[in-house]
Design a protein around this nucleic acid. Structure first.
Length: 412
DNA sequence: TCTGGGGTCCTAGGACCC
DNA sequence: TCTGGGGTCCTAGGACCC
């Protein structure tokens, strides 16, 4: 089997770096990029802010507490999407095999490009230089024989790092690497593994497969492989990815509400957002999911219903959401409302008769292709954009899972 | 003054059909 | 009277990712 060479590129503090580049006054200063609403959190902070203890997910006041001079910047998705698209174009000048994992992370399979560009390290340095030159921002790059390890490697040196995990060095690197550093091992999984005295990738790779399988079911085999640094998942290039599976929007309200009229108005807005995006994607769906988070933050519920017909019109979505709502009694004022449409199918598209319309359709398709990959309400025709639509903290959906398996049924 | 928003995938358990 | 097993579709909820 031929050994692959995979790069994982992770833009450093991406949103914050883009903002600092756009506004020289922000350079060298602690800044935090936040969402548009009142109850928002820090999406990204600059390294200057991180040095003071500012972390992603903090409320603004928390950030200000640990770093009083913190500058708050409301994020602008269009800037990030534009930059991200351009950066991915740079990647594609080395190989068509580029997979965008999120707005600021991509993998490249450069196995077949080495003959042209010399070496992976060479490619990595070129990429770093081009991104720095064109956008003034830095990235960390990992080079390894597969995606799992490349992502691990890019995390090992930040910012502006370059880390190589050679095939014959994998075992040594993983031996003392904490399991939670692997993409796919979250908090819960870490805890369960720790209870089995598994702390490092080395531990996990050596663990008896049957023991892991007894505890975690079918994912046990995969865990052992991850511990050994094995990952066979391919780099899935743009356009080859599976179709979108669901389209949803949610809003945390400026203040908790319990007025039914206000709730319905918000549901209508959300329905319009979901519907317009579904239509732009060219999909309709028959399952509508309504979710509510109550004022106390901790209690929430979700309820879904599956219709006989596929829909993507805003008012149909709204009606379905309302009918779900009518089956429940709200127990508290509402903090967050969300609607998502799933069970999707592509609509048969009628080719427009006139050339001008066909061109417009092509443009829409191109736009959708970007939107599908790079979030919502970002690239859109000016006329479609409601003036009040604020830049939020939307991020690009991740599309990769280690062998598509994530959840586990833990037998205790 | 608490704690965003966008996704994917997986499992359990029930309904229903053959 | 009691009984099986397989398959599909659906809802609910959780883990994980950026």
């Amino acid at each position: 089997m031929i050994t692959k060479t995979i790069l994982h590129i992770d833009m450093n503090a991406f949103f914050a770096s883009v903002e600092q580049q756009a506004n020289p006054n922000l350079r060298g200063k602690p800044i935090a990029v936040v969402g548009g609403g009142g109850r928002t959190v820090i999406t990204t902070s600059s390294y200057e802010a991180r040095a003071k203890g500012v972390k992603t997910g903090m409320a603004i006041w928390e950030g200000k507490r640990v770093c009083p001079e913190l500058i708050i910047v409301v994020g602008d998705n269009r800037k990030y999407t534009y930059t991200s698209t351009k950066i991915n174009e740079i990647f594609r000048s080395y190989t068509p095999e580029v997979e965008a994992f999120s707005i600021d992370e991509s993998w490249m399979d450069v196995t077949h490009s080495l003959g042209i560009f010399g070496s992976a390290v060479n490619i990595a340095y070129q990429i770093k230089a081009r991104i720095r030159h064109s956008f003034g921002i830095t990235c960390s790059i990992g080079i390894a024989p597969n995606k799992l390890l490349a992502k691990l490697a890019s995390d090992m040196q930040k910012p502006d790092g370059l880390t190589i995990i050679e095939p014959d060095n994998v075992t040594r690197v993983l031996e003392r690497m904490p399991i939670k550093e692997l993409c796919g091992i979250g908090k819960k999984m870490e805890r369960h593994l720790n209870m089995m005295s598994i702390y490092t990738c080395g531990d996990m790779g050596r663990c008896d497969e049957a023991r892991l399988t007894r505890k975690f079911g079918i994912i046990g085999k995969r865990l052992k492989e991850m511990g050994q640094g094995i990952d066979r998942s391919p780099v899935i290039q743009f356009g080859e990815a599976d179709d979108v599976k669901s389209v949803g929007h949610s809003r945390t309200l400026e203040r908790d509400i319990d007025d039914p009229v206000e709730i319905r108005r918000l549901l209508l807005q959300l329905s319009e957002m979901v519907g317009s995006r579904a239509r732009r994607y060219g999909v309709s769906g028959k399952t509508i999911h309504l979710y509510v988070r109550y004022a106390d933050f901790f209690s929430s519920w979700g309820k879904q219903t599956t219709l006989k017909n596929y829909i993507n019109q805003s008012d149909d979505i709204y009606k379905a959401a309302i009918s779900i709502l009518s089956t429940v009694e709200l127990e508290q004022p509402v903090r967050l409302l969300g609607i998502s449409l799933s069970n999707l199918k592509h609509q048969a598209e009628q080719l427009p008769l006139f050339a001008e319309d066909r061109r417009k359709l092509e443009a829409t398709r191109a736009m959708d292709a970007v939107n599908q990959r790079f979030g919502d309400m970002v690239v859109t025709f000016g006329s479609l954009l409601p003036g009040k639509e604020k830049a939020g903290s939307h991020v690009i959906p991740p599309s990769w899972r280690p062998d598509g398996i994530k959840n586990v049924d833990v037998k205790s």
